[in-house]
Structure formats: C-alpha cells, structure tokens
Design a protein around this nucleic acid. Structure first.
Lengths: 306, 306
DNA sequence: TTGAAAGCGCTAACAC
DNA sequence: GTGTTAGCGCTTTCAA
C-alpha cells in the first residue's frame, strides 16, 4: 500500500540516493554499469518518482495547468487536444481543471490549480474577471486561449470570428447563394452577429420562412445553433442541401459524421499554439515580451452546401 | 513572481510557523486573537498553502485522481460532474487526467496521475488492462465506473444496459409499438445487442426500410447512433414521432434541447456513487470490503416517442 | 495554547 | 564520476 522511494532504490542498487536521482533524470554523467544497476533496481521495485517531492525540491514542477471553462464544450475538448499534443512533444505534464459554471467556481478552480504550483497555466475560454487572470499571471506564466486579454504579462491566442463569417459568406456566394440568413439560437446573442450582413440575423428558425424571400443558405452561429438548425430545417421539410445550404460556425459533435459543412478557427491549433507560447516563455529564463496570436478560420466543406 | 510561504505569514503575524499551520487547517485550539492576526496576515500577503509541500509532509494529499478515458465523450463529462459534486461536498480536490486514445496512452496517463500521489483514483470507463487497474489498486484506493472489474480491492459502479433496453422496449410496448428495430451504427457492435430481441438489430439505417414491415419504433444503441438515427429518419422523410418513434440509449449532446427521448443509467449518478465509495474507503482507516453498485436506468420521455 | 525540532522524498550545489 | 550536504514548504510529534 506504500510506494518505494529513491532511498529504497539506492539501497537495492547499492549506491547513494543522489546517484539514483541523477539516473532518474537521465543525467549523462553516470557510468553505464551503475546506471543499469539503478534502472534495474527501480524496475524491480516498481519505483516511480514522487512528483510532489520533486517539485518541492526543484522549484519547478514540470507541469502546466489547464483550466477548461467548460468540460462539456467540445471546443474546450479540442483545445485540450492541441495542448496535450504539444505538451507531450515537449515532455511536460498537464494538470487539468474545469470551471463548472459561473466565474466564481472557475476562480475557485483556478486557485486550486495554482495551489499545486504548476510552472504555468493555460486558460481555455475563461469567463474569469480580468483581475483574476492578472493575479494568476503574477504567480506564474499564463496564456489565454479564445479570449483577448489586455495585459502585458499574458499571452493570448484567439480565433477570428469576423473572418470566419466572411469566409462562409464568400463560399456561399461562390456557390451562387446570395440570400443568406444567419441563425443565432443561443441564450445570449453571439458576438458574431456584428460580422453578419445587416438584417440577416434570425433568432428563431421560424423567422426564416416568414421572410418574403426564404434564404437559399443558412449560416448557423455556433455549435448548438448548428445542430438545432439542421433538425429544424429537416423537420420543416426542407432538403439539405438541395433546398437550402447550411454552414455551421464551430464544430458541433457529429458534424463530421453527419457531413455538415463547418467554418471556424481550429481549436486544436489554438491549443497547440497556446502551449507553445507558454512553454517558450517558461523555458527561457528570459521573460520574453508577451505575444498575441490569431489563428485564421478554416472552412470544411462537407455535405450540407451546394 | 514567487509565492509567500507559511514562514512569511508567521513573520508578518508575529507568531511561529506551527501556529500558522494550525490556523490554516482550521484547528480549534488557537486563541481568537492570534487566529485573526494570522488570517489577516495571510490575506494581506495573498498566501495560499502549497499543496505539494502539504501533501509531502502530511502523507495524504486530500486529492483524488480522476481518469476519464475520453474527454470528448459526453458520458465521461457527466460522470465527472457527479464526481465533482460529491468531491466538493466532502471537501476533497479532484486531479483530472484523460486517456486520449488507446489503452497504452491511458496507462501512461494513469501513471502520471499516480505520480502525484492522490489519496485515491476513480477510473471512468477505463480501457486499461485489468492488470494495470490491479497495480494501481496496490498503491491507492481505486474505484471504477462503467466497467465491472473482477478484483477484491477495487469498488465498481456500473450501469445496467440490459435493464435499459428492457425498459425502452416496455415503454414502446405501452405506446402500442411492437415492431421495434434496434439500430447499432457504431464501429464495433454494441454489447447491448445481446439484450435486444433476436433479429431486431440493424447496422445501417437503410436496412429499416428494406424490411417487409418497416418498424414503428427505433431504439438507437448509443449516442452517436442516436444522432445519426434522427437525421437519417428525417432525411428519409419519416416524421418523428408521427411515423416512427425514437428512443436513444445514452444521452447524446443536445438530446434535451432537441427533445429526444432517452434511456440510460444516469452517468452523473454513477460518478457521485463512485466518489462516495472511494471517499468512504479512504476515510475510514478500516479497509472496508469492496462494494459493487449498479445504477438502474432512467427513461426520459421527451418528444420523439408517441 | 504555543513553540521547537524532526522529517516527508527529492534536487542541487558542492566537494571528493 | 560519485557521495555529502543542505534545504524546498509544510505537518506533526513532543515539550514547555
């Protein structure tokens, strides 16, 4: 029920603790003989270094914290994928935490995360107050994904919603569709509305049919709106894409499987970028200037546009 | 850029470190005067205890690890919600990790998690080898959700797929539907197939229409199958539920919003239960006998059945 | 009640 | 190359 320690390994291999420590961290200045003896002893004992002890002693933990504002949001999940890729590539571990609701809970989650003293944190789509982000940045490196934070100590990686809308409308125009409606079914108005042509936005599927000229194409602003839009169109007896084309901004679950055309800044890319920025900043002792990266949108043409 | 320590607080409050430690852990045996002085100093300094140091010294971390086999699976997310609720209620922190693919990566994630020395771990839908689970159980308390593990040292919380299928078919029978098809579109055959009436299972939506008597109701086995089934039915021009009723086993994203009738053992409930089992076992010094809990299915009647 | 002292498991100088 | 020595920030006896 208890874990073997460095000392157990040292005893078994007949060497000093420090030597074992060196071997465990892959130091080159250990004789081949002894190195192998140590590794064998460690293996036989099932030894695994205690990260807490290591972190305490080293002053760095080799871990970066990740705060996902909402675990259930596929966007967060995709950001996490990107982060995990980059982290694995660079040999650092991830410490995951989630917001679970309002800013208050998210703040609590962030505090809990910081109590573990990660070398840095990535905030994915945080709903935190700017002051909380700033406070975190005072303690360790911080980079933010999916929200632009005005601060001279945090890196930011953002998408480009306006460009995505433009890209979608351009694509639809290329297909010959000029009567485009933008659907926004969320509880709160999407910020993307501002990028849509004036008068094109509808807040309920029924509005679409009430128009003098029903739209030839629909741009759904967001995942939830996207799925709702598709079923609403089908239920209303419109064939997709024969009667009406559909592009969804975002990447709703099953979009690939259902063959839905989507447009968005790829979240995994954003996550990768955020991890890279953070690790660069942690790596160099030099406190490099903060950077801001914008990830351009990508249009995935699938079966709902023609 | 550096965090204040217990010692800083002690110095500022003019007391010893040990006293501060007692106050931080809410010990009752500290005078009111000094307690307040300590708390004030801590607040002014923005002090937060270092969990690594605390864990090292105390031998317990007050954290339980959670391994989600797949972050993107809504089921995992719901299990996590239940876990988080129960953990918050009992004042323990969660350490989240994810599988990201095959058993190998999941095993690596588990090892990384264990390196942080949590007091226990919950494995949600693990695809790990039984031996890996057993190995983990040798080091700390383990409870498993969504998979039955034969072991005398891990607790298990499972759903009941057969009961769910039975419940769904019963409900459809009550509605007068006896020609029921079970749809299973997954890459691998669902284990639920065995609970379905012989000959009722179809592996492709088109099979449904080729039958001599098209089904009056469809039971979709799983989230992905569920969403696919709904769009397939609508695309085929069937009205739901007028022409055909639909029940989905699971809880696909947007099922509530889209008004889809579902049946499943509620994952949040399973998570809560798993956390409770684990914390009970950690709490008592007494190594209680392992327990197995089965969570009964719940049918959520919404708009796709009639 | 309060304080002093001894670690928890490990790393990082520093000498040998 | 290898062993020795101090801590990292905290909890926990044990005295006072």
């Amino acid at each position: 029920m208890t874990h073997p320690t460095l000392e157990d390994v040292a005893a078994r291999a007949g060497v000093s603790r420090a030597l074992v420590s060196l071997v465990m961290r892959g130091s080159p200045k250990v004789g081949k003989e002894r190195r192998e003896a140590v590794l064998r002893a460690a293996r036989e004992l099932g030894y695994r270094p205690n990260m807490m002890a290591r972190g305490l002693a080293a002053g760095r933990t080799g871990m970066i914290g990740v705060l996902l504002s909402d675990l259930h949001d596929p966007w967060s999940g995709a950001v996490y994928d990107g982060l995990a890729d980059e982290a694995a590539r660079r040999g650092v571990r991830l410490l995951l935490a989630t917001g679970r609701g309002g800013p208050a809970r998210e703040r609590a989650a962030l505090d809990d995360l910081l109590d573990l003293r990660p070398d840095g944190v990535v905030l994915a789509g945080p709903r935190l107050a700017a002051a909380d982000i700033e406070r975190a940045a005072a303690g360790c490196a911080v980079s933010v994904v999916g929200r632009s934070v005005r601060s001279d100590r945090v890196d930011c990686v953002t998408g480009d919603g306006a460009a995505a809308v433009e890209r979608a409308l351009g694509h639809l125009a290329d297909l010959g569709h000029h009567r485009v409606a933008c659907l926004d079914l969320g509880p709160r108005p999407s910020p993307l509305r501002r990028a849509c042509p004036p008068g094109s936005v509808a807040a309920h599927p029924d509005e679409l049919w009430r128009r003098p000229e029903p739209p030839a194409a629909v741009l759904a602003l967001g995942d939830a709106t996207g799925t709702a839009a598709l079923t609403a169109l089908l239920r209303a007896g419109r064939r997709v894409p024969d009667d009406v084309s559909l592009i969804v901004h975002g990447d709703p679950p099953g979009a690939r499987a259902a063959g839905v055309t989507t447009v968005a800044s790829p979240p995994a890319e954003m996550g990768r970028e955020a991890a890279a920025l953070l690790l660069d900043r942690i790596g160099d002792g030099a406190p490099a200037a903060t950077r801001r990266v914008t990830v351009p949108p990508v249009l995935d043409e699938r079966g709902t546009t023609r």
